[in-house]
Design a protein around this nucleic acid. Structure first.
Lengths: 125, 125
DNA sequence: CGGTATCCACCATGATACTG
DNA sequence: CAGTATCATGGTGGATACCG
């Protein structure tokens, strides 16, 4: 996506949204704020469970676990357990995760770019 | 916020995630499946309420209304009422919405590209 | 430290009905 | 056709506690 031209010709991908149910299911799973934030932070570097929780902020232990499991199940992140005491568990993006990171970064960039626009819209309506 | 980033050259956008609460709030509002699907379909063309509902599929009247209001409130879509009988209401993307569409398209493309990868991951784990 | 399980409050959501 | 309101209800997600 990144530098692909505007809206010009944006074909097949478009109908993914209504396409087969598996694609739709995956799309719905991953298009949520926690998944995006996790991908964003793991995109910066590999992190441990606690680091991730602290960086994200405002996420409960349970939600983080749940989303990490979901992302792992879908092959976006890889979980490495170091059998030390205390345990050390590292999470890293897979290739698919890195690819998604580009999308999430696009969204981050979008948010920054249109922050003013949005504030203005809110004041109006 | 830190304008320096540890990784290659994925700039400031990265720390938006933890940046000011307004950006975070907007990010969290919009990073959800319904918002994405609405943006995706309105990106194809302007649509009426019912059309949108039918194209998206599986969304309740209430959820659609709610999300449309949220997107309008944030200045991503524009609502035009034609005072006919029966009423005709058209929804279209604003400039900000069109820009977000690029992101959503990226996500659609990603989903298609990694569908096989994901299926494989699911079978394994 | 990280994971799992349990409990429970609350809210998001769907269904339904009514209005303009 | 589109919007709003109301209601119930089940599921989401937070808090807590305990395990490895």
């Amino acid at each position: 996506m990144g530098t692909r031209n505007e809206i010009a010709a944006l074909p097949p991908e478009a109908d993914l949204a209504r396409a087969d149910s598996l694609a739709r299911e995956i799309f719905s799973d991953i298009a949520n704020k926690w998944a995006f934030l996790i991908v964003e932070f793991l995109g910066q570097r590999t992190m441990r469970f606690g680091e991730l929780r602290d960086h994200i902020g405002g996420i409960s232990h349970k939600m983080l676990t749940q989303n990490l499991r979901m992302l792992e199940h879908n092959g976006l992140i890889e979980r490495t357990v170091h059998p030390t005491i205390p345990p050390r568990v590292e999470y890293a993006l897979t290739e698919a995760g890195v690819a998604l990171r580009a999308v999430v970064d696009g969204m981050c960039g979008w948010t920054q770019k249109y922050l003013g626009h949005i504030e203005a819209a809110r004041r109006r309506g």
